[in-house]
């Protein structure tokens, strides 16, 4: 469990980046974190693996105060995939790249080899195994970065903008992976601007704006509240936009739809009513 208690943070004295953050993340949740550029999203998630320590308040990961531990120690529990894959790839082969985290955390050689093979396969990178990571395409590098963090099998996983530079097929695969993480043991935190992806992936959505939490609830509820979206500089999902257009013509059309199923249902209702 992750607990933020009255967390405030500032890089420069007198310029708070985060204020009064109170947040509880329970295992079994896929949580989305959204907000405008510079809202403090990355700053917030960096507190979870101890890269940043709160200026005021405290952050607890499985009841351990992050101020009392190091990022390396937390790395076993908290996996963090950064936005730009090029910021973490360095090894001469894909295999050593994936093995890096495992070796740092003291896994046995046998276990390292097993997991490297397993996770290269999972991310469809096996055929490049002995190549240099720098010869991969942008999307493949991103997948390698994911593989090299996932292979540690952390209980908490943070993904910063995972859908960037991924085509629809890869997004679908990522979605499958996220679904496989949705179990009573894991917490997955997704930082994203991709509304359409968020609505499909997350169970709970948190909106951060100007360093403060302004909303926390179901994605359905939040993404169909124009006022909130406006503050976080997000466009509503296309289907919600569609619903608003429909509602102008047919006032009985519900505007709080976010998914395809809901929209189909609403359209059916409308047609039935008019028949």
């Amino acid at each position: 469990m992750i607990l933020f208690k009255d967390v405030g943070f500032e890089y420069e004295p007198g310029q708070p980046v985060l204020q009064n953050i109170n947040l509880e993340l329970e295992p079994g949740q896929v949580v989305g974190l959204m907000g405008e550029n510079g809202a403090g999203k990355t700053t917030l998630v960096k507190h979870i693996n101890g890269l940043l320590k709160p200026t005021t308040g405290a952050v607890y990961v499985n009841n351990i105060d992050t101020r009392d531990t190091s990022t390396a120690q937390l790395a076993k529990t908290v996996g963090f995939v950064f936005q730009n894959a090029d910021h973490q790839l360095f090894a001469d082969t894909l295999q050593t790249e994936v093995a890096f985290g495992l070796r740092n955390l003291g896994f046995s050689k046998e276990e390292v080899d097993n997991r490297v093979a397993q996770y290269l396969e999972l991310f469809e990178l096996t055929r490049y195994g002995g190549q240099s990571p720098f010869l991969l395409s942008g999307g493949e590098r991103k997948r390698l970065a994911l593989a090299s963090v996932f292979c540690v099998e952390p209980k908490v996983l943070i993904l910063d903008e995972p859908t960037q530079a991924q085509d629809a097929l890869q997004k679908d695969k990522l979605l499958n992976f996220i679904d496989s993480f949705r179990d009573p043991e894991h917490i997955l935190l997704l930082v994203t601007h991709d509304v359409e992806f968020a609505i499909r992936a997350v169970d709970r959505l948190i909106i951060l704006s100007n360093g403060q939490l302004i909303a926390d609830g179901s994605p359905h509820q939040i993404l169909s509240t124009p006022l909130l979206l406006d503050r976080a500089r997000l466009l509503p999902p296309q289907l919600t936009q569609f619903a608003h257009l429909m509602a102008k013509q047919f006032p009985q059309f519900p505007t709080n739809v976010t998914t395809l199923d809901e929209t189909v249902e609403a359209v059916n209702q409308l047609l039935r009513g008019r028949r």
Partner: peptide
């Protein structure tokens, strides 16, 4: 700035 990000990314992978 990039150096700091890279250091953060590698520390998150257990680099000490």
């Amino acid at each position: 700035t990039e150096t700091e990000t890279i250091r953060d990314a590698q520390m998150s992978r257990g680099l000490e």
